[in-house]
Design a protein around this nucleic acid. Structure first.
Lengths: 146, 146
DNA sequence: GCTCTAATGCAACTTGTTTACGTAATTACT
DNA sequence: AGTAATTACGTAAACAAGTTGCATTAGAGC
């Protein structure tokens, strides 16, 4: 991971480069798990809660992060695969394969992760229902918790 | 729908029959959509918020209702299919087919509904991941909103 | 009807998230 | 580099969803 690249990501999305935004992206890149606003508050206490919330919103809008559906309490966020690839491969990907991946929540350790290699299967809907997005969340036990 | 049946449902689950619980079940039976705690507050203002929350929890525990995952703010609840069948067919179903159904949220009208005839397809996970539950939420436009 | 136990209502609280507004920092342009 | 325009930030306060404690009320079984 490389600071220049993080700045480039922000620049590519017409966002001003601030230390807060860089730190948030870096945190997502180094994290193997989805993060909540609370996680950001804990791990980046130098920034105000409001700033972190705003940063999350901005990143969702720009599709740097995606919101992960879940069935209670607080919102979780994951780094978009394209961005992760841009930062780790040190070049921007043009493909945005955009069939969504599965999310997994471990009921033991509580952690949520993206499974970028496991895509949501094709879904059939009743007549006249139009699909914009699909989200598939699996709950169970992760390898570490068995 | 039939009041006696509603009482029977409660009785079968070792729950005391109270007017609040009956009204909540009736509301779910007559609603074509998933309901949030806020919806209950609006439609059953004669009961205290706390009571409604507690009723929802109780019904989730007893699997009279199920929690519908979504990606923001507030929790939505749907009537379990078995219960709906018991109340409309006037007899208790023994089959609990328990492969979960898909949920649909319309981005136009904001309503969420259960699609009991559309089940979540089989999901493959990475090695050593164990599945307990799956939830699939589709966002798009419903027939009425096109 | 009486007793036991569970459900309710009220008040207050916690947590997650948002809004308003003044200040500070970044970017683009000399 | 210096300046203006604009965007982001921090603080405080508000708001909303959901929870907890406790006293009161109401079902269920006898």
């Amino acid at each position: 991971m490389d600071t220049l690249s993080v700045k480039e990501v922000l620049h590519h999305h017409q966002l001003r480069v601030t230390s807060g935004r860089c730190d948030v992206i870096r945190l997502f890149v180094t994290s193997n798990y989805a993060l909540s606003a609370r996680d950001l508050e804990n791990q980046l206490p130098q920034y105000d809660r409001v700033t972190l919330y705003r940063t999350l919103h901005t990143f969702i809008e720009k599709e740097i992060l995606h919101l992960i559906p879940h069935d209670g309490g607080l919102a979780y966020f994951g780094l978009s695969e394209g961005i992760r690839q841009s930062l780790t491969d040190k070049q921007f990907e043009t493909k945005t394969h955009h069939s969504e991946h599965i999310h997994f929540t471990c009921t033991a350790c509580g952690r949520t992760e993206c499974l970028p290699d496991h895509l949501v299967p094709e879904v059939t809907l009743p007549e006249n229902y139009q699909t914009n997005e699909v989200a598939l969340l699996v709950k169970g036990q992760c390898p570490q918790c068995q």
